[in-house]
Design a protein around this nucleic acid. Structure first.
Lengths: 140, 140
DNA sequence: ATAAAATCTGTAGTTACTACAGGTGCAAGC
DNA sequence: GCTTGCACCTGTAGTAACTACAGATTTTAT
């Protein structure tokens, strides 16, 4: 049995975050000392590690909750886990593509500016000018 | 002179978002009709387009505010704009790398699972098991 | 016994919006 | 001139995933 400070140190997860996960029902409520302090065991440690790992793989807390429930429920199928992973893979791939598009555009802006910088005044900078140019702007 | 609905239609930006940008001071306060409705002109349209384009390039609203102020201030230098672009480029590149790390890991998980799925029960799925494995978990 | 450190609860702040609720303005048709 | 219906108004609360307090209490160490 150990306190929240030890759990925080062992996992690298902030104390506030641990309490937050408990409030959301991701982490089971631990025992309490006579004075009301939380007392954890190794199961909690495993549980929290699972959450942190899922989070580090880009799963939302909702999806993480789903994964946790799969890990505890023998009458659910492995294919549900696969579906969650593949949905996340799709989201992540899309984000990468969007960021790559952004990166390309920024590289062009930065390259163009090398020619006008630092002699130009800011309002005449090619960067600023290209932002007034409405081509390619996202329409939300 | 046109109303907020027309500005919204022309830019693809939600009415609520336009009001939100005004509240944040990103968009100058427009004139009002006798009854209090906002009345915009072409300058507002250009301004909002600038904001949307910056946003579509991954700039935060704070950085967008900076870019706007550069666009209006002749005694600021072009190099400030370049610095903003390059800082954003760095952020975007880092995000891409992080997402690629995640994508690799998810691909491995999904590949490993193909062998156990769909016969296994969820708690024994290689995906679930690998999440209990604390190697490589982010420590916040 | 007392001081210091750890922990407690609860609320508010962060980013960039979105979604109401409940009220008023405005323009068109009759 | 009146009514109807849509556009617009303000203000508040909700979203995700936390973080940062304030102010009180408990635990631990001397």
């Amino acid at each position: 049995m150990f306190g929240i400070g030890a759990l925080s140190r062992d996992t690298g997860c902030h104390i506030e975050t641990i309490r937050y996960y408990e409030k959301l029902g991701l982490l089971p409520e631990p025992q309490r000392s006579a004075g009301g302090h939380r007392l954890y065991n190794k199961t909690h440690l495993k549980h929290l590690t699972f959450i942190l790992k899922a989070r580090s793989l880009g799963f939302s807390l909702d999806k993480t909750r789903e994964l946790l429930s799969l890990s505890e429920n023998s009458n659910r199928s492995c294919s549900e886990a696969l579906m969650l992973v593949e949905a996340n893979l799709k989201t992540v791939s899309e984000k990468i593509m969007e960021l790559q598009r952004i990166k390309e555009a920024l590289l062009i802006m930065s390259g163009d500016c090398k020619g006008c910088c630092p002699s130009a005044k800011a309002p005449d900078c090619t960067i600023v000018e290209s932002l007034f140019n409405d081509k390619n702007a996202d329409k939300n």
